[in-house]
Design a protein around this nucleic acid. Sequence first.
DNA 1: CTGAAAGCGCTTACAG
DNA 2: CTGAAAGCGCTTACAG
Lengths: 336, 336
Amino acid sequence: MTGIHEVATRAGVSTATVSRVLSGRGTVAPATRERVQLAVAELGYVVSSNASSLATGRTRNVGVVVPFLDRWYFTSVVEGAQAALQRHGFDLTLYNLRGGGRAGVFDHFLHRKRVDAVVAIALELSTGEIQRLLDMNKPIVGVGGPLPGVRTLSIDDIEVGRLATEHLLSLGHRAIGHIGGDPESETDFHVPSYRRTGYQLALEAAGVPIDPALDLNADFTIQGGYAAARRLLSTPVRPSAIFAASDEMAIGAILAARDLGLRLPDELAVIGVDDHPLAAFFGLSTVAQHPAEQGAQAVEILIEELLRTGDEPSAFDTPIEFRLIVRESTARLPSL
Amino acid sequence: MTGIHEVATRAGVSTATVSRVLSGRGTVAPATRERVQLAVAELGYVVSSNASSLATGRTRNVGVVVPFLDRWYFTSVVEGAQAALQRHGFDLTLYNLRGGGRAGVFDHFLHRKRVDAVVAIALELSTGEIQRLLDMNKPIVGVGGPLPGVRTLSIDDIEVGRLATEHLLSLGHRAIGHIGGDPESETDFHVPSYRRTGYQLALEAAGVPIDPALDLNADFTIQGGYAAARRLLSTPVRPSAIFAASDEMAIGAILAARDLGLRLPDELAVIGVDDHPLAAFFGLSTVAQHPAEQGAQAVEILIEELLRTGDEPSAFDTPIEFRLIVRESTARLPSL
DNA sequence: CTGAAAGCGCTTACAG
DNA sequence: CTGAAAGCGCTTACAG
């Protein structure tokens, strides 16, 4: 374990100078700098992050908190954030709330001063949780929904639901089914509820009565979407189109339609949300969100916030882009 | 930012005593202990991990290195490891090699003394990488393949391939196709190659000639499996069964069979590897591995190793369990 | 441009 | 059972 001392000795300077060279702060004569850099390289010296963090109060580490990891959206946000952090020389410490103990994570793990900042993904932090984080002077960025008093990046899920539904309406569909999220799969931000609201608003605006029989819940998986779609497609008033609140559920619906011998898009149109990697494969029309970019964007905001020392943290919401992608799963309702 | 000093003052003791109470090391009179605990609770004090780590040389943080995150296997291992670490009060710092800069990760990130130990998932570390890690006295556990000089948990992919193929052989199949991994999706451990070897060994043992036309590559995704299966099923010598090196590719094969109007399992039997969450939904027979448990097991080994101070690190391979699960996608070859 | 020294917030022999 | 003090390995005013 080479320490800064050995480097200093080898380069014939003080540890202070080594530190200056390594951090880039302060002035060092070019010749000195080179001697130090040589010594560092020869010894393979790497600064101890603990000692450095203790002295500076900065860890160059960001905590990323997710409710769970095994959904495409979360994995993608984390990968995007990770790549961005790495570019900036930051580490990423991952907190997964599913492991149990949300309280533990917030009261303990995050307070150890191991992180400079936190990215909270699809998490509705309580006032207390936010307050504790802010008290510690740690920038927070929330991804996935607005958070009072916190800088956030969020998608307008009502508009997402409306956009998807309006697409179906514009194609002439009137009997439009919906597969939303069940209560268990609600994230903190009630994403499914908002998408459902958008669906209902679009129908209302088009003068289409809302039929509760056409609105079912599932668990955001292909399996769940399949089961819901089978029920939806077995009713006497079979819908001509389905809007599913996620691509995976939409894919389940496509598989259900196939099993029932229904041809897409003529006998059933389907649209999802996400632009999941499988969406193109299934020819699925969807409202694309770009989770990896959301993660990267959250990190950029955080880094900026960390550099802007002193100021009050910003606390507004930045809307995330989304975009309709039309593929083969949706088409104009065939005139009968 | 309450420090240990404030706690000590409030409890009317020295910081040494507070430290003893918090760490559980050393003896403290019960009454004193209670006073300290009360002060800690009242102030919401949490030990600074940097200061503590600097003083003890222990970080209570484990680095987990993955080649990428967006495959079910990796996500599951990470979730399993995370949950186990959290139970032990450890944090998890995630390093993703896809972000670029494998060198950076090993030469720099891991050397900052930010982690006590590392879990390397499906990574074939070079001798140099291993040496540097061992030089730092950090236990390493590799998951997914054997690593010279390192404690590992690994699955015998040759046996996995053999088991899957033997299952098909035992059902009377002789024209057995294979969908393996293409070079790009080879992890460091050449998992696909080994599974292919097992496939070939099983065929040879059964006296079935190996037909290269029945052996294709794909990229471990549903899409890739679909494309490969379509080619496989369009040959004059259409196989009666397919062994795919992952469930996702196997699912692609099932979808391809459906599109071609082939009924499973009578007109085509399919088996995969993983026991992916979608396997049951598709009625897919498979060789199950249990990635979340692999992650958890790796952590348990690491923690044990961290407690066993002084000793030489252990450096052997523990085979990971796998198991044949028969579902509806495989059945006895119908006698013609 | 550079060094001596204090300090970051803990832990742990050591002494009592 | 408990406290005073040294030390973990850096960084950074301060002085020169």
